[in-house]
Simulated scan of single mutants.
Amino acid sequence: MNNHWNKWIYRLWSPVYDYFFNRGPFLKARRKVFDGVDFRPGDKVLFIGVGTGADLELIHFEELDITAIDYSEEMLRQAKKKFPPGTISFRQMDAQDLHLPDNAFDYVIASLILSVVPNSNRAFAEMIRVTKKNGQMIIFDKFAAKPSFVKKLLRPIIKVLGTDIGLSFEKLVKKHEGSTITIVEDHPVMLDGMYRKILIRKGKP
């Protein structure tokens, strides 16, 4: 995967993305991700890889100060159609290189993005950087605890479609957990635990 390829792939996905990933089990899983999240009016919230805005439709976005970024202009265009002008700041941006200040957001939300970007370590480090101290990161994504032989064979093929089925969350957080972040929740939400909701607080235990 690389940025140029992903931009082309998600140009193709953009008109039909909601049909596959914002209904049925995916919609049910997205709702679980936001269960119990205590947004307060005025909170600064960053959506990384906002796509077509599927997650934004599940929250009271009018009460929040929201920045929503995506690398694909076509996906952002689909998202903008759903919301009144001026209510959400949509910006085209690379999740691996956020042009945003340190410690800026109360919540950083990343749905189905760490398994998509070429360098998940860089994207995760950027998430941590822009989150306020004691702020929270909410992740909804697919992770492989221990890839099977079949998954190892399929992994390079599936990557061509713009996603990684072999990403290990445990390896991703290893150098950060306990020093800069604390795992608060880690729950399966779909496909027998392949898709997980992970809630992280920025700060030591």
Rank of each mutant, 00 (worst) to 15 (best):
M1W: 12
I9K: 15
Y10M: 05
R11H: 14
L12K: 13
W13D: 10
V16N: 08
D18K: 02
N22P: 03
P25S: 12
A29W: 00
R30K: 11
V33Y: 00
F34H: 08
F34R: 05
V37A: 07
D38A: 10
D43L: 07
K44F: 07
L46W: 05
G49E: 04
A54Q: 14
A54V: 05
E63K: 12
L64G: 02
L64W: 03
D65N: 15
I66P: 04
D70E: 07
E74Q: 06
L76G: 06
L76F: 04
K80Q: 08
K80D: 05
K81E: 11
F83G: 06
P85G: 00
P85L: 02
G86Q: 00
G86P: 02
T87Q: 08
T87A: 07
R91D: 05
M93P: 01
Q96R: 09
D97Q: 13
L100W: 02
P101S: 03
D102C: 03
N103Q: 13
N103F: 09
D106Y: 12
A110N: 06
S111H: 04
V116H: 03
V117F: 03
V117M: 01
F124L: 07
F124Q: 06
R129L: 01
N134E: 12
Q136N: 13
M137S: 06
F140L: 13
F140P: 07
D141W: 02
D141F: 01
K142G: 15
K142W: 10
F143L: 09
F149C: 10
L154M: 11
L154G: 12
R155K: 15
V160R: 15
G162N: 09
I165D: 10
I165R: 06
F169E: 09
V173I: 11
K174Y: 12
K174N: 12
G178I: 05
S179E: 15
I181H: 11
T182F: 08
E185G: 06
E185K: 14
E185D: 13
M190V: 04
M190E: 09
L191D: 14
L191N: 13
M194T: 14
Y195W: 13
I198V: 13
I198L: 04
L199Q: 11
G203L: 04
P205Y: 09
